[in-house]
């Protein structure tokens, strides 16, 4: 069974994000880049599927500049067999749709039985690429999955997706696109052997032209980024409990209009 995992490289979760000199982008100086955590669930699930079936191939795909190679190498260190890097200045301003179109083009070439990705990347938090990719491919899609079971013939997959208060269970014919929610699994650490072996695995560079694509102007353009406004200081209500509670209720009702 061939599985493609679409991943995104994002700033480390601990990053103090600063807006750059160009207010349309963040300042990337000194940022540590990682594989988006939800994408790690997708990688882990693909590797488990391959291991469970005793055969198959897991291919990591990512779109972005040169630095994205590090994210792909991390995926290879975890156990992916090879990687494809969609690396072309033509994609510099790619929005989610352009990204989905690029991914779809390379997925059509690879013809996997399954595509996995994270439910959203933790930088822009759009959560759009997975569904858009399925739409462009014309494949079924299930988002935010908590469990999956591919049938013995790799013809269909049963998934449980998170909804409020429980799981919604669907059967999807393959090929399909699934996006991973936290809780699907616990991603493995790359072993030292995996890290040392990653260097020997292939990362193929692909340009827009190689896929016969000319990325269109983005449908979504960032106009401006603004820092969150500073949080107003909290208020401690002093005095007897009895009076303080009264004051709290009054403040919630009249000042904050919260109740």
């Amino acid at each position: 069974m061939k599985i493609v995992v679409a991943i995104k490289q994002v700033p480390d979760t601990a990053t103090q994000v600063k807006i750059g000199g160009d207010p349309k982008a963040i300042d990337t100086a000194g940022i540590t880049w990682i594989v988006s955590p939800y994408d790690e669930f997708a990688i882990e699930e693909a590797l488990r599927l391959k291991e469970k079936r005793g055969q198959g191939e897991v291919i990591a795909v990512s779109l972005g500049p040169d630095r994205v190679k590090e994210a792909l190498r991390s995926a290879l260190a975890m156990g992916c067999d090879r990687a494809i890097h969609l690396n072309d200045p033509a994609w510099a301003n790619a929005d989610t749709l352009a990204t989905a179109q690029a991914l779809a083009a390379v997925i059509k070439q690879e013809q996997p039985a399954l595509v996995l990705c994270g439910r959203q990347a933790i930088d822009d938090d759009m959560g759009a690429v997975g569904a858009q990719l399925a739409e462009v491919l014309g494949w079924p899609c299930a988002s935010w999955i908590m469990e999956e079971a591919v049938d013995a013939d790799a013809k269909s997959v049963r998934v449980g997706r998170q909804v409020e208060g429980g799981l919604e269970v669907f059967d999807l014919p393959l090929p399909a696109v699934l996006s991973a929610q936290k809780g699907l699994n616990e991603p493995r650490y790359p072993t030292l052997k995996g890290i040392m072996g990653a260097k020997k695995k292939e990362i193929k560079d692909v340009k827009a032209g190689d896929l016969g694509l000319t990325p269109a102007a983005p449908q979504v353009a960032v106009k401006n980024l603004e820092a969150l406004p500073a949080r107003p200081p909290g208020r401690v209500i002093q005095g007897e409990i009895k009076d303080a509670v009264k004051e709290l209720v009054r403040a919630l009702r009249e000042d904050a209009k919260a109740i």
């Binding site: 650490y189 072993t191 030292l192 052997k193 890290i195 040392m196």
Partner: peptide, 19 residues
């Protein structure tokens, strides 16, 4: 041990990570 942290500098042939 499973992660390879106990035999880091030993070549793979002898059970290590070859780092």
């Amino acid at each position: 041990g499973e992660l390879g942290l106990l035999g880091i500098m030993v070549p793979e042939q002898w059970g290590g990570a070859g780092a």
